[in-house]
Design a protein around this nucleic acid. Structure first.
Lengths: 199, 199
DNA sequence: GGATAATGTAAGCATTCACTTACACAACGA
DNA sequence: TCGTTGTGTAAGTGAATGCTTACATTATCC
């Protein structure tokens, strides 16, 4: 035997690059040649890291959740109370999510949902997001609120984030508009406080 | 002169077929050859109807709004009051929108937003949807409601419909779950009534 | 009925792209 | 040091695909 394999580590290093690339051009448009170029290696080597293009894409999908979750956790780590946590998240999603543009991977994936593997990867990602948000909603929620149950509120909030990204991508709402949207609709769905109370 | 051109009429006839095709496979995956096959004619003829594949796709985007708007208008034509209108729409979107699956065209388009033409077509479509819904919200809205302003509520409702489609496509919510989601979150965003009052 | 323009059919073409093969070199274990 | 195995480079390949060209046929108007 000779030379222990460093494929696993290399995969880890390159996933962000791969994810960015797919986010930028979508699944079909991003070619393996360009992917290799951005990773600073040959197509060949890419195929030693993942069996095919689809696997690279699925790895990118997984990465989207991991990165977002890490960012979110950091964002609310030092929040004094649940309401501050949710407010921060809403503000963050309105403003910064588009920066990285990883949501584009999701849109690209949603055009491929007839592939069971890709659909499963997306479903896993959404389930984790929804669970994360649901827990926040439960912590935030007042006892007497007449709002959707946390389970549903979490889905609605994901929809809110999605439409925020869409209006951003299509330039239908500017930063201020998206922030207002996330604040007002978000607080409405969260329940337990008037819109605009928290910043 | 001889033989008046029937291109315009043929375009009109074929757009639903084209739209279905793009919805099914996405923009990049649907080939012009397959498109022609489904339309029952040769690729060549397709290129006499539209200058290129992109134009076919953009026509499909426009069709999505036209069909949805027509369906919606019919749905609320005989509604006794605004609240019934909105309730019907929410219920319809939860259950039937996925049937046709046209929303997939939107997802496909959102992976192509760096093309100015496609982005403009999508933006036009969303603006019309948002206006349609906003007017409904304004009619529905009670005076004293503590809910997002109609402008924002309309966007949030679009987000709600989007997430309903996503959970459907990924099989994360069944029909009952999506209906509950649309009802509860929808009424919450609309304001002016308790969730679950209307069916 | 003949000229003109639209329609239908078939084949082709240049390019792109996912993926492969071949091979030289480098590193690690024995 | 030798042999095995991982890594880097280069070129290629077969299939798919957007779009075109060439040409025969048909319908309409004068």
């Amino acid at each position: 035997m000779a030379r222990p394999s460093q494929l696993a580590q290399k995969r880890k290093e390159l996933i962000p690059v791969v994810a960015h690339a797919f986010a930028e051009a979508g699944y079909r448009r991003m070619t393996t040649a360009e992917l290799a170029r951005r990773c600073g290696l040959r197509e060949n080597v890419l195929y030693r890291l993942w069996p095919d293009k689809k696997a690279m894409f699925m790895a990118a999908i997984d990465y989207v959740y991991e990165l977002s979750a890490a960012t979110w956790r950091e964002l609310i780590a030092d929040a004094p109370d649940p309401k501050t946590s949710t407010s921060r998240l809403l503000a963050y999603e309105a403003g910064h999510h588009g920066d990285f543009g990883l949501y584009r991977i999701v849109f690209a994936g949603l055009s491929e949902t007839d592939d069971p593997d890709i659909r499963a990867a997306l479903a896993r990602m959404y389930e984790q997001f929804q669970q994360f948000i649901r827990e926040l909603v439960e912590a935030h929620r007042d006892k007497d609120a007449r709002s959707p149950e946390p389970n549903l509120a979490a889905w609605a909030l994901i929809g809110l984030g999605t439409v925020s990204n869409i209006t951003h991508a299509l330039r239908l709402l500017n930063d201020a508009g998206r922030t207002k949207l996330m604040q007002q609709a978000g607080q409405c769905l969260l329940g337990g406080s008037r819109p605009g109370r928290h910043k």
